[in-house]
Simulated scan of single mutants.
Amino acid sequence: MPRYLEHVDAGPARRLAGTSVEADARRGRGATANPEGRFERSRRESFDDGWGPSETPHLRTHVLPERACHIITRNASPDIPFDRSINPYRGCEHGCIYCFARPNHAYAGLSPGLDFETRLFAKPDAAKLLERELSAPGYRPRTIALGTATDPYQPIERTHRITRSVLEVLARFRHPVGIVTKSNLVTRDIDILAAMAAERLVKVAVSVTTLDPVLARRMEPRAPHPRKRLEAIERLSAAGIPVMVIVAPIIPSLNDHEIEAILAEARARGAGEANHVLLRLPHELDALVSDWFAEHYPDRARHVFSLIGQARGGRVYDAAFGRRMVGEGAYAELIVERMRLAKARLGYAGERVTLNADAFAPPGAQLSLF
């Protein structure tokens, strides 16, 4: 059940006692702490007993292979426009403090905090699994969402190239795909994406959280600079690839004043659609974000969480379909109206680009005629 915001009126943002990690050790990371996941039976606290050096080694990124049985994940959520998705990686080196996928790391017995951005899993068999699943008798194509939980173009994609291998399969099968990313690395694959776009098989959503590089470095330390994301929108659009800009997450009293500026910058570079998501704080994310505010913006924490509570029915988080993405109440309605007015003024499309599922053609399928 959602927890109520007792801490909003009780004082400033809370610290995660005993789980914070020294700033030097986590330099370049988003989370300020590494608490146990919600399924763990024990809790650990670090402290200096005076018997040795207290320095914590600098946190490095570790990538382990994950041997999945299936690569397409299905969902029946009524408030999202896709029923299947692929995530080539678990965990994300971008380190965005607000990432709603952080709590998923608890299922692997790891922390949604610093573990989420330093202990990653890659699925090297993704392309092979995808080819098998798309070739299965009775498979019916609908748009696959690529990167719904963690970014398919996070830094480790440069060497692992799993996302590109997945796109190569989708292109061969002429299967529609929607990509969500905040990385300009997506432009590396313009050769594949442009060819798919010519058949209405792809569109790309680029997340732009802020135009302020200082705020971006604090919130999403290993994600590309906001300028690089805008340049990616421009390059994709110039190649004929439909682009949506996602203003996400909108964090009250932190980046909400930038909505119109982000939409204007993205539109000037060719984005045709726009959407937004209000900050979501499921499970451990509430405490992690609160700890982050206590370190970076302690003077704003009370106001931020008060507005979150107003938009979430007095709760830290409301997971109800239809409300979890945009919230409810006066503040949430104001954001929706600002988005609507700005999109209309800037000339964004009123309807989303529809991808073509009728082009689906598994390689070799025509041989069944003989």
Rank of each mutant, 00 (worst) to 15 (best):
S111P: 05
A106R: 03
L278P: 00
V8K: 00
E295V: 13
P213Q: 12
R227L: 08
E328S: 15
I241K: 08
A33C: 14
A197P: 06
R90C: 02
L16N: 09
G37N: 05
S77F: 14
A149P: 00
A145P: 00
R227S: 11
L236N: 11
T159H: 09
P362D: 07
D49G: 04
D286W: 06
R352V: 08
R352H: 10
V21P: 08
W51C: 06
V63Y: 01
P112I: 04
G240N: 03
G327T: 08
E337T: 10
T209M: 15
L215F: 07
P53S: 15
V202Y: 03
P224C: 11
N87D: 15
I71Q: 08
G364P: 09
E131L: 04
D212V: 03
A319K: 15
A248K: 00
R67H: 14
D115Q: 01
G178T: 15
V214K: 06
D318G: 06
L146Q: 11
V326L: 09
A126P: 09
R315T: 14
P2R: 05
I144D: 07
C69A: 12
G270P: 10
R338E: 12
G113H: 04
P2W: 05
H296G: 01
P155M: 05
F321W: 10
Q310C: 02
G314H: 02
C96F: 04
V243N: 05
D256P: 12
F173T: 01
G364L: 11
P298H: 11
F82E: 01
F82P: 00
A330I: 06
C92H: 12
R174A: 13
H58I: 02
E328K: 06
